[in-house]
Amino acid sequence: MRREKEKKSRLFKWAAICFAVVFSFFLADFLMGEPRVPERAVGSIPFDHALHGDSIGLDCAACHTGSRASANAFMPSKADCMDCHRLPLTENPGIETLDSVLAKADDRPWSHKRHLPDHVVFHHGVHAAAGVACADCHGRGYMQNRYGAELFNMQSCLKCHRGETFKEKGFKPAATYCAACHR
């Protein structure tokens, strides 16, 4: 009985040590690594992606005008919103609030600090031309107004460039040398 107890306590000790070692590795990794992308503030205009996506036949590029041809995908300007919202679009009473907010809004309501570091060159247009869909990288979280950047780190970029992920999509082999994406 006592020997069993001793065995159990030894096992427990070893399990605890293993756990402590593995935990400290991951804790250090978490603390020292890239900070998580901060959830961005909603901004002055209450925008809901769920109302503006595939369900109404809108492509991402309609508002994020650079996502097919430019490096930056850009955020829509007020003029881009007004292309459609020049007319009251639904009978929903909320539309009046939206219209009045839009009337008072800045020309560029969604300016924000770029999250990607300056030494990284990322070109949306090249990826779109290669057949990468917006949802492949940004996920479907945009429906909940999430940027999807939790997935973005150098390792995830490299994995796709090396052909280790998205195998079913059959992308052309992409450049993996440093100077392809860095300056």
Binding site: A69, V121, H123, G125, V126, A128, A129, A179, R183
Partner: peptide
């Protein structure tokens, strides 16, 4: 002038049709 070469290459690849 790596940056010029990069920009040119990216522009070229963007205009390709899949």
């Amino acid at each position: 002038c790596l940056h010029r070469l990069q920009n040119d290459r990216l522009k070229f690849k963007t205009s390709l049709t899949v």
